[in-house]
Write a protein that binds this DNA or RNA. Structure first.
Lengths: 160, 160
DNA sequence: GAGTCTATCGCAACATGTTGCAATAAGTAT
DNA sequence: ATACTTATTGCAACATGTTGCGATAGACTC
């Protein structure tokens, strides 16, 4: 029966993983996972807290953050830090990618894992360091902003 | 005379730059620059605040952070965000380098500008994005930790 | 030196996370 | 169904930055 459900299991996987570790399935966690899944793409910690509180006003930030940490431990979610140091979360299902943040126009660009692979390899060769792709967040100028500033102005002040 | 003074000018340069912009030279700024200069290498915002307050207990965090922002605007200092999102400052004089933070042992490794240059170029070629070397902070595993985990365990949980 | 203009400062409140602890409640055994 | 164990929650306090505002004090003119 119902073998057709497409992405079956997010909740079920979580329940199973928790049980295995002697941890508990609670309504708060249900809500937080739902919110995260609904926040397709990325969402900051503060945004997630707010959305969870819409569903359940009794939820507190500490619970939300602790649950997000738990989801990371279980490998179901990941987070990285934006250019201002704030946290951004997304489900692990998302395709792996690095984040490129332009300090000129503020745009967020992604770099696919396939594109990034040789670059990570180059870093490893040069330094022995194996970088995490997904936790990688670069700051700089996108093609357009770089062009706009001319090739002779590699660095200029910008808010941030 | 006295053309021999080696790194003459940090304070003097700052005074001149401020004057030019119609801004003011104050004792607080003097202290903050001194502290930053003495914190050879890197220091977090909180550390700098604390050290400044040792010199002048009346100084407040807002003043320290605002001054650090100012120093960045003037191009005398830079900051980047560590793996936990906290700020780290250093004087611009420091040799340009990227930061590699190991999530295995917590060590901080640096990647020289010369080593990084071809990597940045590769990123630019692949994506059109010009990354800032100095604001670049990678997370991953250093050579030793990567080896310790074996080649088949690319990712494992770790406090971060 | 006194007066003026306004950059800077200190304070207080806020934003985003984190942590310790006592109360609650999930899961299990009786 | 009841009791028990302990993971989880909510609260309150803290850590690190940020922001608005009125008071202070640089720097400049007279």
């Amino acid at each position: 029966m119902a073998t057709e459900r497409p992405s079956l299991g997010l909740t079920e996987r979580l329940q199973a993983a928790l049980k295995e570790r002697g941890q508990r399935w609670t309504e708060q966690r249900q809500i937080i996972v739902e919110v995260l899944a609904a926040s397709d793409g990325h969402a900051t910690g503060a945004e997630l807290v707010e959305r969870v509180r819409e569903q359940d006003p009794s939820a507190t930030p500490s619970t939300v953050y602790r649950t997000l940490d738990l989801l990371e431990e279980l490998g179901l979610a990941r987070h990285h830090h934006g250019p201002d140091g704030r946290e951004t979360y997304h489900l692990e299902e998302t395709v792996e990618h690095a984040h490129l943040h332009c300090r000129g126009c503020g745009a967020e660009q992604e770099m696919d894992a396939v594109v990034a692979a040789p670059i990570l390899k180059a870093i490893a060769t040069a330094t022995g360091f194996s970088a995490d792709l997904d936790h990688l967040s670069l700051h700089g100028l996108c093609r357009r902003c770089a062009a706009a500033r001319g090739p002779s102005t590699p660095r200029a002040k910008a808010g941030e």
